[in-house]
Computed example of a mutant assay.
Amino acid sequence: MITCVLGIETSCDENCAAIYDQNKGLIANQLHSQVKLHVPYGGVVPELASRDHVRKTVPLIQAAMSQAGLKASDIHGVAYTSGPGLAGALIVGATIGRALAYAWRVPAVAVHHMEGHLLSPMLEERVPTPPFVALLVSGGHTQLIAVTKIGDYRVLGESMDDAVGEAFDKTAKLLGLDYPGGALLADLAKQGVPGRYTFPRPMTARPGLSFSFSGLKTFAANTFLSGADDQQTRSDIARAFEDAVVETLMIKCRRALDITGFRRLVMAGGVSANQALRECLGKMMHKRCGEVFYARPEFCTDNGAMIAYAGMVRLQGGARENLDISVRPRWPLDQLPSLST
């Protein structure tokens, strides 16, 4: 029985290793952020990210093993992120993960990064039970997923252009905030005057569950260029932008719940840590006599814990990788095979 899994995450600019034990829960969690490495460039530089993963992944795994007080023979399986993400970054974690599994004579499994995010609320004491609607909001993805059971996913809608996290970061850069700016923009919005500016709620006047945030970003830019350049104006624009994003996501979530008839909502990904979004969706679900679930902030961004957990679920369901090492920089979530158990 596979109960103790090492998880490795190297899909972008976070380097992570964690160990999840089915009986004890999360027993080790190590993370190295590359933010300082990429700040001078205003965004992630793929080649620099890959090289840093080469330097940091093995020491992080060693730190996780030490933190858990485990040796190689205590690990029952190795999970690594295989996609989606940056090809060069993914191949580092995949190569190390597959090599360790071979050396330790345990099975390996390639984990879908977004399934890891989707399952991150399972790391909490209060966990969602399928069926539920999942809102996945990160720097690279904005998706609504119908989850009838773990491993059985149907994409209901997704972004046609910028992901919501990407729109947050680009708007933050416009307002003069450092990279990554999403959380900084949310802090700035707290000082904004509600209603001074009203931004559009994109694609809410038409039916469907698709998203588009590129135009909203442009609207923020035009508003900024046509107004006064002072701190209060920046705060007001940040507030208007955040309000528009949050209400747009709420409207689409409500539609998805109406279409599916589900009474539970899960939100995951980096943007799910946004306090305004949590409060808005919490109030909406309370009015609907439903429930909303999300992970603590440290498990909203990329982390090894979610990969270890998702890997354990997949390994217990019979998933195994052969000796080939491959990554999937583009990997639709609904192409994942269903779990046998």
Rank of each mutant, 00 (worst) to 15 (best):
T260P: 09
M267G: 03
S272I: 07
A256M: 03
A268M: 07
E279P: 00
I259M: 14
K252T: 03
L281F: 11
R263L: 00
L265S: 06
G270C: 07
V271Y: 06
E279R: 15
A273S: 14
R264G: 10
G282L: 13
F262S: 07
R255K: 11
L257W: 01
L281Q: 11
F262C: 07
L257Q: 10
R263H: 15
H286K: 15
R278I: 09
C253T: 09
G261R: 13
R264A: 15
K252F: 11
V266M: 05
K252N: 04
A276D: 07
C253L: 08
A273C: 06
K252P: 00
R278K: 10
K283V: 06
L257K: 07
G269I: 05
C253H: 08
C253K: 02
V266T: 13
M284T: 14
S272W: 08
C253W: 13
M267L: 12
A256D: 09
I259Q: 15
M285L: 10
G261A: 12
M284S: 06
S272H: 10
C253R: 02
C253V: 05
F262A: 04
M285F: 03
L257M: 09
L257R: 07
A268C: 14
R255V: 01
T260N: 09
A273E: 07
A256V: 01
N274I: 04
C253N: 05
K252R: 13
R255P: 05
R255I: 02
L281T: 12
V271Q: 05
R264N: 14
L277P: 02
A276N: 10
R264Q: 15
L257N: 11
E279F: 13
L277K: 03
D258V: 05
T260Y: 08
Q275M: 07
D258C: 04
A276G: 13
N274E: 06
C280E: 13
Q275Y: 00
A276C: 09
C280M: 15
K283F: 04
